[in-house]
Amino acid sequence: MGLAKRIIPCLDVDNGRVVKGVNFVGIRDAGDPVEVARRYNEQGADEITFLDITASHEGRETTVHTVEQIAEQVFIPLTVGGGIRSVDDIRTMLNAGADKVSINTAAIHNPELVRQASQRFGAQCIVVAIDAKRVADVDGLPRWEIFTHGGRKPTGIDAVAWAVKMAELGAGEILLTSMDRDGTKNGFELGVTRAITDAVDIPVIASGGVGNLQHLVDGILLGGADAVLAASIFHFAEYTVPEAKAYMAERGIEVRL
């Protein structure tokens, strides 16, 4: 038996509450992040990702405190992302108890941050988050670009080339979110998932669009992902983590049961 494919529930946290935008409108409250994280820990989640979507400075201090509380009670790896801009921000989150830190926009503005952070803290704790969106085909081949600002602002950067560059700079893992699918429940964008998993030697987490358990299976078997991330299907108790793992195991995927 080899390495298990990982299931990672994701907590999008705004001002101290887990939220989930459905199709980017109507934020639904999904509870207290510490409670939610503890529940997933008990259910046998393989990791937890905490994405801070709080805009205000005061809110960010709340985030550090919340991460500390989660880290005291959750004994699986915890990734924290959202608003990470500097080596100091990374250190703050690691000291608060994060095991990995996810860098998104800051890597686009300053790719050297990835190299510095990886050298300072080790590649194992540096995750680069990529928000990709399908754009016009080039020479009949599909192309995905990096978008910022919640999928509204194009950067012109090719998502696959960017993933390769981030791996070279020292990222330990890629968190790939399809902005076409995020919040839709229509399943992962498998094309970009497969293109990036084939292009890099580091693990890739597929994210964005999970609406049922078959989507998780497809992300791994068709997309080639090493881990699958989902939020709303778990938050609103449509499925539990053990149900997801049992479903995947029945379809021949190695999971930690």
Binding site: D46, G172, P203, D226
Partner: peptide, 11 residues
């Protein structure tokens, strides 16, 4: 193919 780092749950 196996990814490096070895990241995750192994027996």
């Amino acid at each position: 193919r196996l990814k490096v780092p070895h990241m995750g749950w192994s027996e």
